[in-house]
């Protein structure tokens, strides 16, 4: 038995009767690429045929060259690594805090009456508004950036976990009571497994916000990172660099989301649902 009382990846030997398309089969991956590739080809054609100038909106071929150049010098990897590191650290911190706060307020209505209004008020503050304060508190370097990302991740995770825990079926909770589970055991063996599906959704929206806030954080003064590439491209008038950074965001952001889905999929195999995995 792991931390959560789940029949995890190792459990059932019996074959699952329901036969779904595998979430990452070749066909599905191909289908996912149809739209972006079509858009890229159209864009390239518009510039090549002279229907668009491509000055402020450079064609994919030029962005590819820019990306290649950035990659060749090792600069791109460095920027990605720095940004990814910030997102991951901020995400882990924010998600952990959001999970704990959400589990506590979801579990205890009394605690929720005290804490939830305050947290909701804090949530109403546009997170960018924290930037000046965080810079004063934590300085201009990494800590303030990670803190901002953590704040961004915290709220969707908190909201998702708290709401999901509070709405767990009373009937299932009673099973835990009949078996005399203590408070922590009830959370670990009933409440958290029961909310896992919505928890994964909450983590995914948290991660999305993490990527959003890393750009805000890197706008406020960074010497490296994908956000820095954006600012740098704007200041030096290099739209191809801006677009290269944007596309990199799309790719890396989608990749982390996919990893999150893949990583949690074994924990959700018990679900008996209409079945759109991922």
């Amino acid at each position: 038995m792991g931390f959560l009382d789940l029949a995890g990846a190792a459990a059932p030997a019996a074959a699952t009767k329901t036969c779904r398309p595998r979430p990452f089969g070749v066909q599905r991956i191909a289908a996912a690429f149809v739209l972006p590739i079509a858009a890229l080809v159209l864009w390239e054609l518009l510039v090549r045929t002279g229907l668009a100038t491509g000055r402020l909106m450079p064609p994919p071929s030029r962005i590819a060259v820019t990306l290649y150049d950035l990659a060749a010098t090792g600069e791109l990897v460095r920027h990605i690594a720095v940004t990814l590191w910030r997102v991951v650290v901020g995400f882990v911190a924010g998600a952990a805090a959001g999970t704990i706060a959400g589990a506590l307020t979801g579990y205890s209505p009394r605690l929720s009456r005290f804490a939830d209004p305050t947290l909701q008020a804090l949530r109403a503050i546009p997170s960018i508004a924290w930037v000046p304060l965080f810079i004063l508190w934590f300085g201009i370097f990494e800590t303030s950036k990670v803190a901002l990302i953590a704040v961004g991740v915290f709220f969707p995770v908190y909201l998702g976990v708290s709401g999901a825990v509070a709405s767990v079926d009373r009937k299932i909770v009673e099973v835990g009571r009949v078996f005399r589970l203590s408070g922590p055991a009830l959370v670990r063996r009933i409440l958290l497994p029961a909310v896992l599906p919505s928890y994964v959704v909450a983590l995914r929206s948290g991660l999305g916000l993490g990527w959003m806030f890393v750009v805000a954080a890197e706008f406020m003064g960074a010497s490296e990172g994908l956000g820095y590439l954006l600012v740098d491209g704007q200041q030096l008038g290099k739209p191809d660099q801006i677009l290269a950074a944007i596309l990199t965001f799309a790719a890396v952001g989608k990749l982390t989301d996919t990893l999150l889905v893949l990583g949690t999929a074994p924990l959700l195999r018990w679900q008996d649902t209409y079945g759109r995995d991922a």
Partner: peptide, 26 residues
């Protein structure tokens, strides 16, 4: 709830994230 008293409800109330064995051994 007492360790020597157990109850069976109208609906099975099994925990869907556990296998049959996990539920029985709960």
């Amino acid at each position: 709830p007492h360790p020597l008293v157990n109850i069976i409800f109208q609906e099975p109330r099994l925990l869907p994230w556990l296998t049959v064995a996990g539920n029985v051994g709960f």
